[in-house]
Design a protein around this nucleic acid. Sequence first.
DNA 1: ACTTTATGTCATCCT
DNA 2: GGAGGATGACATAAA
Length: 800
Amino acid sequence: MLYLKKYFTEGLIQFTILLSLIGVRLDLDTYLNNQLPPLREIILGPSSAYTQTQFHNLRNTLDGYGIHPKSVDLDHFFTTRRLLNQVRSLDHLRVPSTELSAWLVHRDPETVVSATSQSGPSIALDNGGSLEDVNNSEASAMRGAGGASETTYSLSGEDSLGAVAPEDSQEQGERESSDDLSKEDIDLIDILWRQDIDLGAGREVFNYSSRQKESEADKPNEENEEAGGREESWRNGLNLQAVQSLTHVDGETGESIPVELTSLGAQTSLSLQECLRLLEATFPFGEEPEFQATGPTSQLRASTEETPSTSQGIPLQAPLSQSDTPLDLEQQWQDIMSIMELQDMEVNNTAVNVTINNDPNNNNASNTESATIGSFELPRSTLINQDVSLHQASLPSCSQDFPTLFNPELDSTRVQRPTLVRLSSSNSSNINSTFGATNLTRLFLPPPLNSTTNLTTTPVLPDPFSSLLEESMLDEISLLDLAMEEGFSQDQASQLEDELDSDSGLSLDSSHSPASPSNSETSCSSAASSSSTSATFSEEGAVGYSTDSEAATAEAEEGAVGGYQPEYSKLCRMSYQDPSQFHGIPQLENVNHNHTYNLPLASSYSERSQLSASCSKKGRDKQMQQTKLQPPQDFVDRQSSRDERRARAMDIPFSNDKIINLPVEEFNELLAKHHLNEDQLSLIRDIRRRGKNKMAAQNCRKRKLDTILKLEQGVQDLQREKAQLLKEKMEYCKCIRQTKQKVQSLSQELFAQLRDEEGRRYSASEYFLQYGPDGILLMPRNMTTEQSNKPDKKQKDKKK
DNA sequence: ACTTTATGTCATCCT
DNA sequence: GGAGGATGACATAAA
């Protein structure tokens, strides 16, 4: 009955889809609720094989967290949900657009943040291939988290609230095509999520900033009092009215208004240049002239061509007359723009809209972070005010950070950021226009204004640095960044890195775990090695790695046998062993071409025979115990090797040790002393050959092991180097973050002091700063692409 | 009974 | 060209 129900529902949904495709719309919910039996025959046709179980989509399903991945109902549940959403999506006319919407779903125990970036071809997000090389551990961790990976491909409109919705048909098809996309999806989601977090941060800031600006505008008197003569001097110095009278044009025309900025530096005590110098010293920044040529304005044009413009741009120009400031403001701006260039090299010509959304359905408290991407447009009206914890938004995605150089709106983020960020949908339009107008608006994330706590803004790694690290390290990097953001010290981060390394296939440093088998194995092998180290000659007189003799005797009862340590070989095969622990083993240290078999003979054949009889391997001891009543010669024969037996059978007058280990000259002399027949000579030569070859084989095996150990050591060194690079990267990210904060403070100062011809402030909600090769433009937010380019060309070079 | 591991041996190549 | 080292392949014993 259960299967019948499943088939019914499934088939009904598919049938509905088919009807919908041909124009017939059905209320599937009604059908499902009533479960009309008449369609049963139709439904029985398609089976579950028709619709694969998509665990990654299940993970994306908000309701899917309540179902165990191994639940029997999983398939049914998921299929139903997916198909139902697919049908629901048919209600919305979806014209395939070239825009790309990246969904970020950040879920806290009770809240969810969904950031949507909108722009660019949707194909870009589907390129999970480049992100495939991700640490499996994290992927598995996210997978194991189950609900933690709260990823939902939501459709625009009502689905924006987090309801499960099907993605684009294209993406849907891709996801249906394979069930093992979950890992890639997770990886991709993780990366995009981090990118979107940055974008989302900008949004929140904007709202707060608008309110703040408004509140500030309500108290002009206070500000005037506070500013005092400073503002007056500002006005005088800028001579803004005079400039605007010449260039300020109606918003419809799109003309720009030059604004003098020079005196701004007088009130900003910035150490930005220092930071920038540090950045330039450490980063492979592009040449500044190059940046001037390919400045962010081109990026702006590319990204804003699709949106019409209705307002003007106001170029801000700083007069030279007021440049009596201790710091050269223009230089600072150029430095900033030089940083922006880094971004321009990597940033796509895509405008990104970020939306922080709430998902009331997320109840899984275990989830800490999750992300989802999709190619959907999210109506701005669907934005919901939501308290969002963005402390997870630590991300080494640099490409998305730089394009947004200056966004006064971001100021607001900082205000509430450390804990909660409130997003207002009322400003979404402005944000869209802003982001659509230029990617520069978010170049620098604003620093927290009121918080002395941890920074939640993501440390940004410039793209040149991302190339330093493999994508497979992204997750580790992210964790490290997160650790840094969380206030981890370098040492702690290093420890984290070590822990992360342990997840890799070759975990070379297992010394942390005292209970690990390595220790026991190591000690065992060490004991064995110590016992065998003193061994001199084997049964056949071979020396070195060959089977032990005297020393092994003492250990024979305990099972320590043989010069070539089986224990050690076992260790070498165990990847979790730390090879460094074995460097102290004498045998291993002398592996390479340590032909110890050239040592002088120690015992004669008879002596050695007695020795081997008394102190051989454990098994032989057992044999001896079992056969102690037997004649000694039989026992000796049994303990001897084949060559020894042969030598005895052939009445060879000297021991195999001599045969094998004597130098060629002495060996020839020895043969000359004795009158031996051809069979004896042949046997002696064979014994010598085999004996030498045996030792050679042992040496060869030792050498192989040594090579393996060296390779492991090399891997260990590389991992250490990687950890060091990660540390450096975190430092760079810190520096960039500080730079962003500086720039943000500059932006705030600028907006705080800019006045129009009527003496009113420029609201950050209405204007934004655009940086180009020729200077800084004050652009209205509602300006469209085409018009934004016009003032760009008309702007005057920023004066000093 | 089967697998794994260690070791010996042979063939081959090279010095 | 022989001696011997290096090494892959195989055999065998032991666990």
